[in-house]
């Protein structure tokens, strides 16, 4: 008899191999052990701060997840963030809303440029986005001549990163909203299934009638949009837009996605995993900050954690043969 649901045996075996579950356990452990040794960790103010920062890196990581799911990579996330921030920043004089709209639009356009280069020129995406990373970063500086744009006169813009709605930081709300929408998209829409199929086997997806170029284009534009969305949340923390705001952000975003169980080969990963990845990532950094190990040690542990987690996932996923 064929069963339609998850059969119990499979489920029990599955859950121990489930990255999301493992990550959840890790998150819980960090939280518990952290608050034992660093009591200030569990304070509401601190936790909200952790959530806010996790939301910012998490947003960009969701975009990175989309691109990884279709079997490609986006190294230009940080540069898209910088460039879309400064183009939006040029509009700050006309008000916060035009600025934000231009930022998001720029992000999507830059994402589409990546997608077109990858699908039409058929170049390895690592190379394409390495190139656009450089181009966009340069353009960001050219646009502002290397100067910062101050946001003191744009309360709405600033409230995006610093405000609260019903006691919840605005970035968290945006992050969860985007996360839920994309999670539903991946799970319950045709496009979502096609994203997984394209990443798992591009050739088979194409032969099966999927417009793989379109799917990749969608993934890259989402990545562009989420990078652009994360930008204002970050710049309002410091009251200013700088053309180098996004530098290095692509690596954090990819690290968070991978931490969340997204495969670098494609076709495997979830938005929920990435959200948990972002929380774990930020909480761990917070524990380190509070315990006074210093910013640079954070950097070291960030890298160390990334390597360790990937190794652990690999051991769990060890193929049958």
């Amino acid at each position: 008899m064929i069963s339609n649901g998850l059969d119990d045996d499979n489920f029990k075996k599955g859950i121990l191999k489930n990255h999301t579950f493992i990550l959840f356990i890790i998150l819980a452990c960090v939280m518990i052990i952290g608050s034992i040794f660093v009591p200030s960790l569990a304070q509401k103010g601190n936790l909200l701060n952790v959530l806010r920062l996790a939301s910012i890196v998490g947003l960009a990581a969701i975009g990175a997840t989309m691109v990884l799911l279709v079997g490609e990579i986006d190294l230009s996330i940080g540069s898209i963030m910088s460039l879309s921030l400064v183009t939006g920043g040029l509009m700050v004089g006309y008000g916060s809303l035009p600025a934000l709209a231009v930022t998001c639009l720029t992000g999507i356009v830059l994402g589409i440029i990546n997608g077109v280069l990858v699908t039409k020129l058929k170049i390895n995406s690592l190379m394409v986005t390495l190139g656009t990373m450089s181009v966009f970063a340069g353009l960001a500086n050219v646009v502002t001549r290397g100067q910062s744009i101050f946001l003191y006169d744009s309360p709405l813009y600033l409230s995006l990163g610093r405000g609260y709605i019903a006691g919840i930081p605005v970035p968290v709300i945006i992050f969860l909203f985007v996360g839920i929408v994309l999670s539903i998209m991946l799970r319950y829409t045709k496009t979502g299934k096609e994203i997984y199929f394209t990443g798992a086997n591009k050739r088979a997806a194409w032969v099966s009638g999927i417009n793989t170029d379109k799917i990749k284009l969608i993934a890259y534009s989402i990545s562009g949009l989420t990078a652009a969305l994360a930008g204002p949340l970050l710049s309002s923390q410091t009251n200013r837009i700088t053309p180098i705001q996004g530098v290095g952000f692509e690596l954090s975003a990819i690290a968070v996605a991978v931490l969340g169980g997204t495969s670098l080969i494609g076709g495997k990963g979830t938005v929920i995993g990435t959200i948990l990845g972002a929380l774990t990532f930020q909480l761990l950094l917070n524990v380190l900050t509070l315990s006074g190990v210093g910013t640079y040690m954070e950097q070291v542990l960030k890298g160390f954690l990334l390597i360790v987690i990937v190794v652990v996932y690999q051991v769990i996923d060890k193929p049958r043969r």
Binding site: L264, Y296, G303, V310
Partner: peptide, 18 residues
């Protein structure tokens, strides 16, 4: 560990610069 070099060397980048 049979893990992608992109991630390992990225992690190492963090570790070394820190």
């Amino acid at each position: 560990a049979k893990v992608p070099s992109l991630i390992v060397t990225l992690g190492m980048l963090y570790v070394l610069s820190g």
